[in-house]
Design a protein around this nucleic acid. Structure first.
Lengths: 111, 111
DNA sequence: GACTTATATAAGCATATACTTAAATAATGC
DNA sequence: GCATTATTTAAGTATATGCTTATATAAGTC
């Protein structure tokens, strides 16, 4: 499955949206998703597995809970793939603006 | 089908890459794709239909040919969806830099 | 107008994936 | 250690999608 396929599923997109702010326990995620999509807890768990398997999420145990967090590498890959089309909707930037805009440089201190 | 599903298919991604530079005739696209993916002309045509149907491509007739071009609205939608994750990999920009970076403003003249 | 070229559509089939229910695994509390 | 809570995994099924071959549509050529 390709990263784009992973994001093709609305449940998985919603889960990632939930994780964009904060880590959340599998159960807390399941509760929200079950309410919004009317699917079983097992189904939610299977989606979490897909997100793990394709590098969109990480888990850590905390007692009986499993805390999920977003992992951005595949999202960055997608962002990079879009680069070849960006000139269609982003104005041409000069070299410096591009550096700033796309964060290619680590800056020591914001001015 | 969601925009992400459309991009989930490697053939469709490749077609869009081909269109990123230039318009191309359906036949020219089919030729390349058939060589690279070993699928039939009909299959390529079906992918072109999906790209049309979901707003990723437009066609115009030119004699017996059909010239395809990329249409970026759904790509921009995806780009916008990624916004909520960008803070993970882009440095925090100040307001002005963000304006410049994301092209929210039409500038009259580059300095 | 028949023939060829360019492209799309139809019909049918195979496979992947998203769900279900049931069961397994693991930590917590008594 | 047994029950409970939290979560994953297994097995089975339905459906969507991507392919195939065959056919339709439309324009260009003689």
């Amino acid at each position: 499955m390709h990263a784009f396929d992973v994001l093709g599923d609305p449940v998985r997109r919603r889960i990632l949206e939930l994780l964009a702010d904060d880590e959340r326990a599998a159960g807390a995620i399941a509760e929200i998703i079950q309410r919004e999509f009317a699917i079983s807890q097992a189904a939610v768990s299977q989606h979490l597995k897909v997100l793990r398997d394709y590098g969109f999420a990480r888990v850590r145990r905390e007692g009986a809970r499993r805390l999920y967090g977003v992992e951005t590498a595949p999202l960055r890959d997608i962002d990079a793939w879009l680069d070849r089309f960006r000139h269609f909707w982003e104005p041409k930037l000069d070299a410096l603006a591009t550096e700033i805009a796309r964060g290619k440089k680590k800056r020591k201190k914001p001015a």
